[in-house]
Design a protein around this nucleic acid. Structure first.
Lengths: 296, 296
DNA sequence: CCCTATTTGGTAGTAAAACTACGAAATAGG
DNA sequence: CCTATTTCGTAGTTTTACTACCAAATAGGG
């Protein structure tokens, strides 16, 4: 029973540290020593040789090599490269919960790490098929009506700022009464974009239902796949993040959603061809001018 | 004239690929061959030995080693680890300019890559000292008035959503006339937060000047250090990103700024102690309840 | 409980990798 | 055109990762 429970030996999971953490219990006694040393101070191993690692873990050199193969790596060299990549994204989120003892610079580092890891997660969860379908809908839409509350309202406004630049009328209604009015007045050919991280916010679900009743298509941007909102959506863009419920944890969901908007708008822009782009260039130049001249 | 213009040999800049790109012109002719091979297919080098790299680049093995030291690495091994970390963040933005031929999933991947690389960049440019100073100002502030246009308006609203939760009154004025009014009515003890990626937006600079004239302190969040806005700011939080002026490039500045707001609010929250946190927990619970019950 | 079978982990050796010293060619300066 | 300096490859050295082998430890069966 060698090679404790790894996945495909070659590609393997993305994060070696996470892998070692989970596989730890299944490891040989000596291998576990190596694992513990690695988990306690990964950066130390990153700059160490086999001999040094063996000494730190108080095992022999071949044991270190065996450890590498046991977790699915192709030797020590390969292991180090994988480790380097894992560490580049920052220490995994599970480890980097912000504690009261952390100095401000550590807090900053952890939040950056966390955000980046979370984006990496969202990247691999994103369904590009739904994204493409959304592009088609938007290209054929007469106008976009965007709905979101709280943090999602910010995403909605970002939406509103981007799509008019592409010649696609987009409006984000924020007032809840006006939202109901806007949704009720939608027509076939219109597209509603409902944004909710939980996908459970009742008023948003209600707006999706209303819009659909009027014959409008509904694109939903959520952070989970099985939601109430999904029932009333034609297209579901799932931007899954690592947001946990900890008090101090930042809300990466809004950031991932913004990236999704970036992708969506870029894809739409590409489909519009170069005529529109020329217009865009002119607009950007004009804005740059404004920066220098505008006086109140 | 060995060791072409690198920084501190040991730590060095974060992204090796970015570094090589910029240092390319200053390199020796043979080193440049290595650089070109590296830039054209970094992943290939990642899994190659010195001998293999030498063969691909059609140079001798010592040249490869010399190349590594020339760009500030401590030998080939160190270089490979740095490269691995750079590649973990995705291929650098300059390389991953989105082309018309890219398939949608490639576009998505590139935008994610670009955003993450950009955040990594911002992380290392962030001055935690200014951040700490901002925390002190905010803790002693009677109220916060936040100003931003365009993409920065979104950041301003995020600010507005976060700080009242900490018991700190914060208001983001969006209408430009009301902005002037709000800035003119500020008093000593108030804090103005001005957000502008360029730091050159005239109306924002003007608002900072106005607020300061009234005795208020000014915290500026910008994307560059030497700006007009800096002249009227007490604290300058520089959230530098890689935003280039390409047409399709997403604006990562707003995302980096949002992360900065996350950090700022987290730091402030920590300073407020556990009493406030209890209140926060109650608030979050209430919001969760709302999600399930609210009906319009 | 003992003896056998299997796993585990260390010692010693090997192959190959990275790195260094030196010298020849190429380039730049006077 | 000759000298000085830089550039870059050849050949050798040292270090490093990896392998083969064997001993200790553990587990299983009678």
């Amino acid at each position: 029973m060698n090679d404790a429970g790894q996945t495909t030996a070659t590609s393997g999971p993305r994060n070696v540290l996470e892998l070692v953490r989970t596989a730890r219990v299944d490891l040989r006694k000596s291998d576990r020593k190596v694992a513990d040393v690695l988990l306690s101070d990964p950066h130390r191993i990153l700059n160490a040789t086999v001999a040094e690692t063996a000494e730190i873990a108080e095992v022999s050199q071949p044991t270190v090599i065996r450890f590498c193969t046991a977790i699915g790596c192709d030797g020590f060299q390969d292991f180090k490269i994988r480790l380097a990549q894992s560490l580049a994204l920052g220490t995994p989120a599970t480890q980097s919960a912000i504690s009261d003892e952390d100095a401000p610079d550590q807090v900053a580092a952890k939040i950056f790490d966390y955000t980046m890891t979370s984006l990496d997660w969202a990247r691999h969860k994103l369904d590009i098929g739904q994204m493409n379908a959304a592009v088609e809908l938007i290209l054929n839409a007469r106008s976009l009506e965007i709905f979101g509350f709280g943090a999602s309202a910010i995403v909605a406004q970002d939406f509103q700022q981007k799509f008019p630049l592409l010649g696609i009328p987009a409006h984000a209604t924020l007032d809840s009464h006006q939202q109901v009015m806007a949704a009720s007045m939608m027509k076939p050919g219109d597209v509603a974009v409902t944004i909710s991280n939980t996908g459970a916010t009742m008023s948003i679900v209600e707006l999706a239902r209303l819009a659909r009743e009027q014959g409008a298509k509904v694109i939903s941007i959520t952070g989970a796949s099985q939601t109430a909102l999904a029932n009333y959506s034609d297209i579901l863009i799932n931007v899954e993040t690592l947001d946990n419920t900890d008090l101090f944890t930042p809300t990466t969901s809004r950031i991932a959603a913004l990236v999704a908007v970036d992708i969506l708008s870029t894809l739409v822009a590409r489909r519009l061809g170069s005529d529109h782009n020329l217009q865009l260039v002119r607009m950007k130049r004009y804005l740059a001018q404004m920066r220098k001249n505008e006086v109140f």
